[in-house]
Simulated scan of single mutants.
Amino acid sequence: MEQFKFKPITPNTLSALRRLRMRHLELLCHLSEATTVSAAAGKLNLTQPAVSKMISEIESVSKAALFTRGRTGIQPTIQGALLIRQACDMVQSLDRCFSEINSIEEGSSGLLRLGSFSTTSIFPKLVVDVIQQLPLLKIQIQESPPQELINALINHELDGVVTSFSREMMGDVRTKSLKLQPISTDSLCVVASKKHPFSKRRTIKWTEAVQHRWALPPKDALMTKELMYALKKMDCPDIIPVIESMSAITMKGLIQFDDNLLGIMREHQAKEEERANNLAIVKIQPKINLPDLYLVTHKQNLIPSATMQALQKALGL
């Protein structure tokens, strides 16, 4: 069993522990959305005076003005927004703790909540490897676009994410609380059916390829953004797809059964489809690189050390 050392805390924190209750944390979480004391009171099933008193108690302990009151309602100050964010983190951590306790009660050795996008073949292999190392570990999986995964991780709804990082995500100040461990490089592959005219060609230029029929993820998807960005740098016209779909399974089927359709996949996924004789990789030059893949966790890691070691071993970190 892991041993944790309780670090000394400041007198202010000790005072807060003795004077505030879990109900105060719950109130702060509701104030992240509620803009009036009345609305917060409704969520807590308390009277408005009772909630106003609780806010005063929190401000007294914090020794700071945490909210401004006006005709339009109540708004957090900079200090208030900081406290709300930390309170939400604490409640989410508590929720994760109880979920793991329930998993242990059901016979597992713990709970690991992982996220990934659906178009990577690295993730299923990772999960299988971790389970082989820790057979009693319970794993919950969420598949979503990269930005949604990062939001879930920041909000403590996930413990770790296998994903790529776009330029926009790298610029998000919230990601400073996250730890990025590189897993592999990645690139974009154009794929087609085995009978597509391009499937046997030795080399094709983008200027020719953009004129054909395409099936692409929506324009706000990371791969589509990277494709359009690269085409713009090459002075090629944008691709106007005849089909848009976020589903990797649907996209694969469409390309496989339409001999005149082109699509895009991540390189490792495209190579697996080609090895299985499902699709052909179209040899288009120049190659378009995608953002690297990372294992993303919190810098203040809450994953038990044995589970984290299994994750890192599975990824070769």
Score class of each variant (00 low, 15 high):
E2V: 14
E2A: 09
F4Q: 12
F6P: 10
F6H: 15
K7R: 14
P11V: 03
T13S: 12
T13W: 12
L14C: 07
S15L: 08
A16D: 06
L17D: 07
R18G: 10
R19P: 05
R19L: 08
R21M: 03
M22Y: 09
C29G: 09
C29K: 05
H30Y: 06
L31F: 00
S38L: 12
A39Q: 13
A41S: 02
G42S: 05
G42D: 06
L44I: 00
Q48D: 13
S52H: 08
K53P: 11
K53G: 14
I55N: 05
S56A: 15
I58W: 00
S60Q: 11
K63H: 14
F67N: 00
Q79M: 12
R85Q: 12
R85Y: 10
R85G: 12
M90N: 09
E100M: 04
I104Q: 07
G107A: 02
S108P: 03
S109V: 01
L112W: 01
L112N: 01
L112H: 01
R113Q: 05
S118I: 07
T119P: 06
S121V: 15
K125N: 12
L126D: 01
V127D: 02
D129I: 03
V130E: 05
Q133C: 11
L134E: 07
L136V: 10
L137G: 01
I139M: 02
I139P: 00
Q140S: 11
I141K: 06
E143K: 15
P146L: 05
L149D: 02
N151E: 15
N151V: 11
A152I: 08
L153V: 05
I154W: 00
L158N: 04
V162I: 04
T163M: 03
S164C: 06
S166N: 02
R167S: 13
E168F: 08
E168L: 05
M169D: 05
V173K: 11
R174G: 02
K179H: 13
L180T: 14
I183R: 00
L188I: 04
A192Q: 06
K194S: 11
P197F: 04
S199G: 02
S199K: 00
K200S: 09
I204W: 04
V210K: 00
R213E: 10
W214P: 00
A215E: 08
A215V: 07
P217E: 08
P218Y: 01
L222T: 03
A230P: 04
K232W: 09
P237L: 09
P237I: 09
I240G: 03
I240D: 10
E244H: 03
E244G: 00
M251L: 14
K252Y: 12
L254N: 04
L254K: 03
I255E: 07
L261V: 06
I264N: 01
R266M: 11
K271W: 10
K271T: 15
E274A: 06
A276D: 13
A276P: 06
N277T: 15
N277I: 15
N278P: 07
I281N: 02
I281S: 02
N289Q: 14
L290Y: 02
Y294E: 10
H298P: 03
K299A: 01
Q300L: 13
P304T: 05
P304A: 04
P304N: 06
S305K: 15
M308H: 14
A310C: 10
L311V: 01
L311W: 03
Q312C: 08
K313A: 14
G316M: 03
